[in-house]
Structure formats: C-alpha cells, structure tokens
Design a protein around this nucleic acid. Structure first.
Ligand SMILES: Nc1ncnc2c1ncn2[C@@H]1O[C@H](COP(=O)(O)OP(=O)(O)OP(=O)(O)O)[C@@H](O)[C@H]1O
Length: 688
DNA sequence: GTCGACGAGGTTTTT
DNA sequence: CCTCGTCGAC
C-alpha cells in the first residue's frame, strides 16, 4: 500500500497506530491514554494523506492551545518531509481554532456581511470595553459592589462558550454576582452592540463568526469543500462551539479525524466538554474507533502511578469496563518519588539540587521540566534558580502584554492601524498631562473617533485642531502626540514604528511611573518582537492570537543556544514530554487548587490535571509537597500552616511511589540555620 | 476635570 | 503585589 520511503517513515508504528494511519475516508476517532502516540499517529496520518496525493493545503489541522498546535504542526510537517514529499509541497494548514478563525475571517468575512478589517480584542481589551459600557450605563453606582471588569469578561466568555444562560451561569459559577444578574445582562448587551458598531471581535466572536461562516449557505459549503480532511488534536478540550464548527465544516464530506483522551480533559473552566469526544461516534455515524494502550513515553513505574490515579477518577469508577491501563515495554526505571519538604524553601532547594545532579549525570536542562498548577507557584523557585545562576524559561502566566506601559505602546500602534479604535485613544489620551477621562472623551468626539471618517493622513491635523481649547500644557502634549503619530505613519517597518513611538513615550513613561527604566527596556523587547512581523496588522493580530508565551520568547535568540530548564504550568505542558519532571506543590489546596474544591466536577478536573502532570516524564518523576506554608514571610515569628499531601496522592496512588521525607528529622534546625546563614552571606557577598 | 494619596480587596488554568 | 474606588486639593 505504501511506497518504500513512506513505508520506512511508518515502520515504527504499532498495528493500532498503523490502522489509524492507513484508515481511508470517513470519520475516525482515536481515543487513548497519555503517551500512546496520539499526536504521532495524527502526524503520520497527515503524511500518509499527502503521500497518497492529497494537497497539504486541503488538509486542516486544529487544536485548542497554542503550544499543542505548535507541536502538532511541526511533527506533521516533519513527517510529511520524511515521507519524501518534494520540497515544493505546500504547507499543511493548521493552528489553534482561534488563529484559523482569524485567518479565514480575514479572507471571507465579507461574505457574511462583516468587514474583513475587523479589530481583535484580547482579554484585557474586552475587559476595558466592558468597563466603558459599565461606566456609561452607570450600573455600578448601587449599594453593593459590582463585579470587576475582569470578572465580567470571564463571565461573558463562560456564558458564550457554554451557551448556559447568564442567570444559570451566575448561580452556579459566580453566586456572589447573582444579585446583579439583570444589570450584568444589560452591560453584556451594550458590550455586544459596541463591538458590532466598532467592528471589533473578541476571542469568542472569532469562533462564533467562524461557525456562522461555516454554516452559511454558499460560502459555508465552499469553505468546507476547500478541505478534504479535517483533523483535530486534544479534542477532549473543545467546547460546544468548536464541535459545531467541526460539524459545519464536514457537511459535504465526513473526512474528519479527532484525537484525544477523556482522562486529560482540563479546560472545563472554559466550557470544554468531554461529551464532544465521547459523543463523536453519534455525531458522525460510521465512526471508526481506534484505541491505543501502549505508552511509548513513560517507563512502567511511572505508568503504575498514573494508572493508579486513573483508577480513582469518577469517570473510571462509573464505567469500570472502559478502564484503560497503560503499559510500556520499558519495565525498568526509577520509581516515582514523593518528597515531603520542610517548607517551600526546602522544596526549591531540593529541586535545584536535583536538577543540577541530573545535569551532571547527563540529562541536559532542556530535558527537565518543573511543572506547577499556577504560575505563581514557581515564584520562590525562580528566586532560587536565579540565585544559583541556573538558566530557565517559564511558560504560562506571562504578564508582559498586561503591563500598563506595553499596553500603551500597543495602543499607539493600534490607533495608527485603525483611527476609530476608541479603546486605544481613550487609553493614550489619558497618559497626557492634564487629560483625564473627561477631556479624553471631548477630544475623541472632536477628532471623530468611531465615526469611521478619520484617515490616518489627516489624523495629525484633526488631533491638533481638537486640542485648541485645552490648557496650554495639555495642548502641547496633544500636539507632541500628533507629531509622533505623523512621523510614525511615514515609517514602513513595524519595528521602526515601535522605535519612533518609544522615543515619544520615554518622557511620558518617566512621568507616569516610578520605575521607567525597566519599563522602557520592555518596550525595547517589544521592538525586537516586532522585527519578526511583516506588517503592523499582522503584528497586532499576533499580539492577540499568539502573544509571547514564555520568558524565552522575549529573551531572543542568544538564549536559545544555551541549555535552560523548563518551567511550565501543567496546562501549558499538555502534549509535551521531558526526561525528568519535577512537580511542585502537590499539596491539598494547591492541587486541587482550593479555588476548585467547590463542586465534584471541578475536583475531578484537578485530578485529571494531576494525571497530565504525572504522564509528562519519560524516565523520572519527582513530586514535592512542602509541609509548611508561611503566611507572612517577613512578619514576626514563624506563623505557618501545615501542608497536607494532595488528596489525590493518598492510598493506592501513594503506594506506587517511593517516599522521601524531610532531609533528616534532626537536621530540621540546622537546615533553617543554614538557609539563614546563606542569606546573610549572600547579602554580604554583594558588598565585597 | 485632573491628580495624588490612601485604603481595601482579591488572588487559576487559555484563547 | 497590583487594581479599584474614594476623597480632598487645585
Ligand atoms: N510506535 C511508536 N514507537 C516508538 N515510539 C513511539 C511510537 N508512537 C509514539 N512514540 C513516541 O512516544 C512519545 C509520545 O507520543 P505522543 O506525544 O504522540 O503521545 P500522545 O498520545 O499524543 O501523548 P499525550 O496524550 O500526552 O498528548 C513520543 O516521544 C513519540 O515519539
């Protein structure tokens, strides 16, 4: 069936994987546990399709997270190349649902009556716009406090994604906001109108409009017809909307492959539903189901722990006959270790020691990862890593674009790109001396923001005219802005534009913030980022859809040559693997997060999250539990609470692990004295 | 209307 | 820690 190159490329696949790769047309579901080669099989299937003559551009690869999308695409493209596809072969089309939605809408939106030059809103923009509406409606004036803008934005996203009406969503997920149901509803209506009037799309709109596009008469069929095959990785993390998009894309043919693991569903909080993958055979009658059980990633001792955890999942207990046990050929290897640490500092110290030790033994830092539930769980470790000069790159929880000064510069670029962008104007004008919300509104009115009539060329004049009635200092500031915008508009390269705007922003920054120097350095990094973009619109789109995700994205190429440790949230580690994994804070209240212990479904999701973490390593797994958490680190005394080993790591799961206690009971005091002495020494060292 | 000072409060995970 | 709202001075 395959020619020889192709055969070689697929030679290592096992027979179930092979079946999935060779499977012809029609719906295919690969339902399998962690590390069984789901993504590998998906990539091989793409390569097989291309080898059989399918045009790569007529294959669409989708997944939810950016990191999984990157992994999926690069593996698929490598596989296609390995099967001996000529270099002229086009690239497979693929990415996150949101990125593809953007790409398709930029091309076809006019077919459903939407202008193709829509602006994109990221989460913070959406929150800001909601805030504007909230102010206008004077809804927050009441007696009891109204939800904050970020909370409103997350409620909005949840309602739209799950399609559970506002009232029910508030009652179940945000009970403390339920008393404002009516007012929140009005804010959301206003937010929707505002977006439509200004031609703005938020993340959810991208999916909603894609769905409408895909379901539309005419263009919908055309669009679906332009893809011979649609393949979706991590399908358990899709929500109702995404499943509807997939279904709509497959009205004309049912060549659709979805891949996933219901035990790894960890995006329930944004309304992803495992029903999508479990009900897939009903949605697509005639579905061929392939199950994979052999793990090629982890050793058997690690799988024993993972299997014990799966056995305790509610979904397994409800359907014991579906219980999947993973197995490996690699029977040997260290037993996973459960380390109880004296406190968080002890945890950090042990992780650093272990990481360096493994490196001595030949495992480079990039093959080691430290995973954690939430970004700030790594704070103390980051301090210790810096102190010991261990380079690292952290994924998840990066706040680069949320920083006020970065948002300011982005706003400047945006209003050049779209002079009708009221959010950008409102933000920037208020940075000028003597201008607050009131005058900003008046100025915007005078400039004609939002009326669709401002051309970038006449922008400068309009702005200057609008400023004549202001106090002298404010007028001067506005004129300065107009000049900078005029200069910038004449520059071709985005990076050059950032540079010019940065020049103007310097004094504003110095006036606005106590610490302008590091902030201006961030803007230098933004300029480096801009160098990779071909156009301003592309750059602005990327900042919303593919923003820097790691400290490494910002550090630039020099760092990439070096060896560095990986730090990542568990969510961002989905689908990836390392030789050694260290899991921090496996304490109750951390995993499960004490914000998620409210209802049983949330607790189950936390258990699945732990499963994702435990199934990342190839050889070695170390899990850490600090026994003490200090509340006020610099306060008086040693006020602390005791950490408990996570409820998920009790009983049978725990029995599969080797237990490593606090270093020695009797060293408790010396250890404390030691760290104190280290700190004093470190302080003094800086003086010599 | 603007701006600085002050104090209270909230605080995941991703697109 | 950062953000949000309030209050008084200009
Ligand atoms: N048949 C095979 N022979 C040898 N190695 C394999 C085989 N199939 C997959 N692998 C290897 O197993 C590892 C895990 O594969 P992959 O990442 O595709 O698993 P996955 O099921 O997608 O995992 P996850 O559930 O974590 O997303 C990879 O290193 C891959 O190269």
């Amino acid at each position: 069936m395959f020619d020889s190159d192709v055969h070689d490329a697929f030679a290592h696949l096992n027979s179930a994987q092979h079946d999935a790769v060779a499977f012809g047309d029609g719906p295919l579901l690969i339902l399998a546990g962690a590390g069984t080669g789901k993504t590998t099989t998906l990539a091989a299937r793409v390569a097989r399709l291309v080898a059989d003559g399918v045009d790569p551009q007529r294959i669409l690869l989708l997944t939810f997270t950016r990191r999984a999308a990157g992994e999926m695409l690069s593996r698929a493209r490598r596989m296609v190349a390995a099967t001996g596809a000529p270099a002229s072969t086009g690239k497979v089309m693929g990415g996150t649902f949101h990125a593809i939605a953007n790409r398709l809408l930029r091309r076809y939106a006019d077919r459903i009556g939407l202008a193709t030059d829509f602006g994109l809103l990221d989460a913070a923009d959406a929150a800001d716009l909601i805030d504007l509406v909230r102010d206008d409606l004077e809804v927050a004036k009441g007696t009891s406090r109204f939800p904050r803008k970020a909370t409103l934005a997350s409620i909005y996203g949840r309602v739209v994604n799950s399609r559970v009406p506002l009232k029910a969503t508030l009652e179940s997920q945000y009970p403390w906001c339920a008393e404002h149901t009516e007012a929140i509803g009005r804010v959301f209506t206003g937010y929707g109108q505002r977006k439509r009037a200004r031609n703005l799309l938020d993340y959810d709109d991208l999916l909603l409009f894609w769905k409408v596009l895909a379901e539309a008469e005419g263009i919908g069929d055309e669009l679906g017809g332009s893809f011979d095959h649609v393949l979706v990785d991590e399908y358990q993390d899709t929500n109702a909307l995404q499943a509807e998009i997939v279904a709509a894309l497959r009205r004309t043919n049912d060549n659709v492959t979805v891949v996933g693991d219901d035990a790894q569903a960890v995006y329930g909080f944004r309304a992803a539903s495992v029903r999508n993958i479990l009900d897939f055979p009903q949605t697509f009658p005639g579905t061929r189901i392939v199950r994979l059980e052999q793990s090629y990633r982890s050793t058997q001792p690690i799988l024993d722990t993972a299997n014990a955890l799966v056995a305790e999942m509610a979904q397994t207990k409800d359907n014991p006959e579906f219980r999947k046990s993973l197995f490996s050929d690699r029977l040997d290897g260290p037993q996973p270790r459960l380390h109880t640490c004296h406190d968080e500092d002890d945890q950090s110290a042990r992780v650093c020691d272990a990481v360096l030790d493994r490196r001595e033994q030949g495992t480079p830092l990039v093959q080691q990862a430290v995973l954690f539930r939430t970004s700030h769980h790594a704070d103390l470790l980051e301090l210790e890593l810096s102190r010991r000069n261990i380079p690292y790159v952290k994924y998840g929880g990066l706040k680069f674009l949320e920083a006020a000064h970065v948002k300011d510069l982005v706003a400047l670029l945006r209003l050049l790109d779209n002079p009708d962008d009221e959010l950008a104007w409102f933000r920037i004008l208020q940075r000028l001396e003597g201008i607050g919300p009131g005058r900003a509104r008046v100025l915007m009115e005078a400039i004609g923001v939002g009326e669709g009539g401002v051309a970038v060329a006449q922008l400068g004049d309009r702005v200057v005219e609008a400023a004549v009635h202001l106090p002298a200092a404010a007028e001067r500031a506005v004129v300065g802005l107009a000049v900078a915008l005029g200069d910038t508009a004449a520059i071709d390269e985005v990076a050059g534009q950032v540079q010019r705007l940065r020049e103007w922003y310097g004094p504003v920054c110095a006036q606005t913030f106590e610490d302008p120097i590091p902030r201006m350095a961030d803007l230098q990094q933004l300029e480096v980022l801009a160098e990779q973009s071909t156009s301003r619109t592309r750059f602005l789109d990327d900042l919303v859809l593919d923003p820097p995700a790691s400290t490494g994205d910002l550090a630039g190429p020099p760092l990439l040559d070096e060896d560095y440790l990986i730090l990542s949230t568990i969510h961002s580690a989905k689908g990836l693997e390392w030789d050694t994994v260290h899991l921090l804070h496996a304490a109750d209240g951390m995993i499960p997060s004490d914000m998620s212990t409210g209802d049983p479904d949330e607790v189950e999701e936390e258990r699945r999250l732990l499963y994702v973490a435990l199934t990342r390593p190839r050889h070695e797994l170390d899990v850490y539990v600090p026994l003490r958490y200090y509340h006020q680190r610099f306060g008086s005394g040693d006020r602390h609470s005791f950490g408990q080993v996570s409820r998920f790591l009790q009983g049978p799961v725990r029995d599969t692990m080797a237990r490593v206690g606090p270093r020695d009971a009797e060293r408790d005091v010396p250890v404390l004295a030691g760290t104190a002495a280290d700190r004093v020494d470190a302080l003094l060292d800086e003086l010599w």
